[in-house]
Simulated assay, not measured.
Amino acid sequence: MLKEDLNLPKALEEIARDVEPVLYDALAENASQEFQEVLLHPVKAGGKRIRPAVLMLSCEAAGGDPEAALNAAAAIELVHNYTLIIDDIIDHGEFRRGVPTLWKKYGLTMAILAAVHYREVVSELLLKSKNSVRLLSIVDSYIMRLVEGERLDVLFEQVGREDDPYIAEHRRISVSFDDYVDMVTRKTSSLYEASAMMGAVEAGAGENIIEAFRGFGLNLGVSFQIVDDLLDLFGSPSETGKQVGKDIVEHKLGNMLILKGLERMNGENKSFFLSVLRSRQASQEDLDKALSILARTGVKENAVREAWLFSEKAKSMLTVVPDSKAKRLLLDLADYVVYRSK
């Protein structure tokens, strides 16, 4: 059980420390010594481990023993990491968390094999739980939602991938804010929903409490993605490990700030911004100008407010959950997601 004087950063550190060995052992088991180096590369690169924290804190807040949820917490972190492996292949991403991505370091073949291995390890971990049938069902359904979110995210890109006939045929030149929210609730919120629900399931909570945690995870995930959109455009590279203007470089219309900014731009600025977004390789000068135009629309401040609103909605979902240290840390986590810098 959590100590009363434990703050959120310390709690996240403690949970990560508990989850790490479970991750490493589960990945290494049944893998050759040679392959273990490949398998461990993504998890050794770091990460915030927020999803395992949501799961374990949800378990304790729902009246359960978080230690009993360790395997499920490790499983959800592995789901997250293997989707990142696939995401980096799809996006041709070469760096993540300040180190080369798995495909870049070890090649496409080993990256794909590692992703398959991760998926099977997830099942192995969840089978150790007395709630394995329910947990596996949750993970399976949310992975399918996540895949649909990734599909939409790719289709929202404004140029590129012309060698892929499906994307060329189905590309979305126009994207509404509702389309964006639908995409991010699938791509990003899915694992937060799954994490919170799985924690409550491991606690043996009733369906109304499980549903409350699902709503918490859903809104937390949207808030998290909006802030990610902000950081992908205007974050400090030294903190995020990402290029300033990353989503413009990657032609992504599925970014809240870009969508809202385009609504506020006048004709000339809007035409220029779209030309940069749809340019196969924009110059640094044009990228800087596009970012300046976007910033002047006030979308940075708007993004923080939108993220805060979703964070507040996430917190409101837990009003049916009795007060506890774990619940208060979940509420703190909802605030942290809004005001983080990486």
Rank of each mutant, 00 (worst) to 15 (best):
L318A: 06
A74G: 11
G298D: 06
G47M: 08
A73E: 04
D286A: 07
R171A: 01
D323I: 12
F177E: 15
A114F: 04
D182N: 12
A326R: 04
R186V: 01
A295E: 15
V147P: 09
A212C: 00
E150T: 00
H92F: 12
N266S: 12
H117D: 08
S132L: 10
F216G: 00
K3V: 14
A114Q: 08
Y192C: 15
A194K: 01
L2T: 11
D65F: 06
K246A: 14
G254T: 11
A212F: 00
S292W: 06
M1A: 13
G298W: 03
L78R: 03
N131A: 13
I167T: 09
L55A: 09
V184C: 05
V321F: 01
L78Q: 06
R296F: 07
E301H: 11
P21H: 05
I76M: 08
A326W: 07
L127Y: 14
V299I: 00
H80M: 10
A111F: 03
P66F: 09
G46R: 10
P9I: 04
R161N: 14
F177P: 15
T188V: 05
G107R: 07
V43I: 13
K300P: 05
S279G: 07
F35P: 02
W103F: 05
F156K: 08
Y180C: 07
D178Q: 12
I258Q: 05
P52V: 05
V116K: 15
K252D: 03
D163Q: 14
E263K: 00
L191K: 04
A203C: 02
P100K: 12
V276A: 05
I258P: 06
A53I: 13
A74Y: 05
D25M: 09
R214A: 09
D25Y: 15
L2A: 12
V304I: 13
A74D: 07
M1R: 15
A16T: 13
A196E: 02
Y192S: 10
L126S: 12
R340D: 02
S316A: 08
V244H: 10
K48F: 12
A314V: 01
Y339H: 14
